[in-house]
Amino acid sequence: MRREGSPFSGLGAVTTKELADHLSSARMRVLEWLIVLTAVAALIGTIQQVRDTVSEDPFVFLKLFTEARQPLPSFVSILAFLIPLMAIGLGFDAVNGEHNRRTLSRVLSQPIYRDALLMGKFLAGLITLAISLVVLWLLVIGLGLLLLGVPPSTEEVLRSFAFLVVALAYAGLWLAAAILFSIVFRSPATAALTTLGLWLFLTVLWPALSPGIAYAISPPHPLYQLLNQPDPDTLVWEQGLARLSPSTLFGEVLRAVLNPATRAIGPIFLEQLEGALIGSPLPLAQSLLIAWPQLVSLIAGTIVLFVVGYVVFQRQEVRA
């Protein structure tokens, strides 16, 4: 049975309203300040460190993103940690909040499909995240300009922009996950806890677990153990398992995008390095190609999670 009318009618209204909600909500303000303060603290330390190292580096601006100065982690590590937090914060009560406020049926009795409602909520979350990330990006560039006194090169701007896109994809993934759980669980607290638990598991526990699991699935050949060398098969398993975690994927993409000298992610054979001019930067397109599978996984994961949430939402009854 084919229904008439556009599933997108009302999308703009929903997006605008949700966006306004996000941008004015106290929750967002807390998250934004948290991110901005930690990021600025990390940045200022990093900038001092970068200024102290006099050596000529054609990618000094990218260093601002990746360099860490004790005791603070680098700017990107902070973002890798806080982006999911922010995305989950935006999405965990997206749908169950409407249920609990009993506003869902009234909104849906307006001439819109619920497609528009869900998409609008996702879009608004994504736009909020994009705004926050762009602000942070400008903050890095601005502080860099102010304190380093050199303009970034086109390559650096493009690379940092690519970082922005990747960070958005990563944020989108966690947003989609949070929205999915907000559809599945009626209680926002349950949804938030589940998503945060999943995030902590995948970010903290999983990277520690995956070597053990890889060891169990594909025990290293005794020869390699004798040589005290890692077995390539085990390594492949280990890496494959670790990549189930979006944070691993995100870290890998960043390594390729923000460090132009990165030639490969993961273990490589020594013979692959023969004749290679180590340290020579790769063109951006090649760097992106290295990180492409990871980037694709992030984007496709976002879409798949959204679709799962979408299907579940569509099959739900409007009333509680």
């Binding site: 049975m1 084919r2 229904r3 008439e4 009318g5 556009s6 009618s9 009795s109 307006q110 001439p111 819109i112 499909y113």
Partner: peptide, 10 residues
């Protein structure tokens, strides 16, 4: 309403 819910809801 099953076919043209938007018109109905309008």
């Amino acid at each position: 309403p099953a076919r043209e819910p938007l018109k109905v809801k309008g």
